[in-house]
Computed example of a mutant assay.
Amino acid sequence: MSPTVVIILIVVLLVIAAAVVLGARASRRKQLQNKFGPEYDRVVGDADSRSEGERELREREKRHAEFELKALSAESKAKYSVAWEEVQIQFVDSPEQAVSTADELVTKLIAERGYPTGDYDDQLANLSVAHARTLEHYRDAHAISERSKSGEAETEDLRQALVHYRALFADLLGENPIRSEGAASPASEPKVPEQKINNHDSDVANSRPDATSR
């Protein structure tokens, strides 16, 4: 075999190897985009490079795999459903307190599912692996809750916070995520019928908080 043929074979093999590597990278990228949805764009956009952002998402996956997550029992689900109903009732007389209670209830539910609680940003990162589709709801709810603490949130803002909290709340309970206006774009959310956390309450957007908007 002549040296020229050997060189050609080496070049061909290198091209094939590069194609395989690029194909595997593209496949992995697609998997991350499908899993994290809008969160993929957010993390990559905040990073210095796409590879750094993807590295962060893979690290989240590794941490998530170490959590001892558990499904809720029927009794626990019923308990949380009743607690949420009480939050809605509380909104009638005290919207600010209801939003604060909703935040505490969601945090408690996060912990019971087996996620560590503490730093808010860490909570977002941990939830993003399995609950990316409702993560923007949590961000919006938390932002309104923080504004409420300084008296900067109107009643309609507080009602929207409750709607956003409810979306993540339903997701953590194991129900289908609930679409709510004012959060993530419809294209980034699953196309599912609206469902209720309990059997006799209407959706939060049409529940007691709506009737008290000022």
Rank of each mutant, 00 (worst) to 15 (best):
M1D: 05
S2L: 09
T4R: 15
T4M: 08
T4E: 11
V5R: 06
V5H: 06
V6P: 00
I7T: 02
L9V: 05
L9P: 00
L13N: 04
V15R: 00
V15D: 02
I16W: 02
A17K: 06
A19L: 03
G23Q: 03
G23C: 03
R25T: 07
S27E: 06
R28N: 01
R29P: 00
K30P: 00
Q31S: 06
Q31G: 05
L32H: 01
Q33G: 00
N34C: 11
N34D: 12
N34K: 14
N34L: 13
F36T: 09
F36D: 08
G37S: 10
G37A: 03
P38C: 11
P38K: 09
E39S: 09
D41Q: 09
V44H: 04
S49G: 02
R50Q: 15
R55I: 08
E56C: 03
L57I: 12
L57Q: 09
E61R: 15
K62H: 08
E66N: 14
F67M: 14
F67G: 02
E68R: 15
K70W: 08
A71D: 13
A71T: 09
L72F: 10
E75F: 04
E75L: 06
S76H: 07
K77L: 14
A78E: 07
S81V: 03
A83R: 11
W84V: 05
E86W: 08
I89E: 11
Q90H: 07
Q90T: 03
F91R: 01
V92L: 11
D93L: 12
D93R: 11
S94W: 04
E96W: 11
A98P: 05
V99A: 02
S100T: 08
T101G: 02
A102N: 01
D103R: 13
I110W: 04
R113V: 06
G114C: 13
Y115N: 10
Y115F: 15
P116F: 03
P116S: 14
G118L: 11
G118V: 13
D119W: 08
Y120S: 13
Y120C: 10
D122V: 10
A125T: 09
A125S: 15
S128A: 15
A130T: 06
A130W: 14
R133L: 10
H137A: 15
Y138D: 07
D140V: 12
D140R: 13
A143Q: 12
I144M: 05
I144N: 03
I144T: 05
E146M: 14
S148D: 01
K149Q: 13
S150A: 12
S150N: 05
G151R: 07
T155S: 10
E156V: 12
E156A: 03
L158F: 06
Q160L: 15
A161G: 02
V163R: 13
H164L: 02
R166N: 13
R166A: 12
R166M: 13
R166T: 08
F169T: 01
D171G: 07
L173T: 10
E175Y: 06
N176T: 06
P177N: 03
P177I: 09
I178A: 07
S180T: 07
S180I: 09
S180E: 11
S180M: 08
G182Q: 04
G182M: 00
A184G: 03
P186L: 01
S188D: 09
K191G: 04
P193A: 04
E194Q: 01
E194G: 05
I197G: 04
I197Y: 00
N198I: 02
N199L: 10
H200A: 08
H200W: 14
D201N: 11
D201I: 06
D203N: 05
V204N: 05
A205H: 01
D210C: 09
T212C: 12
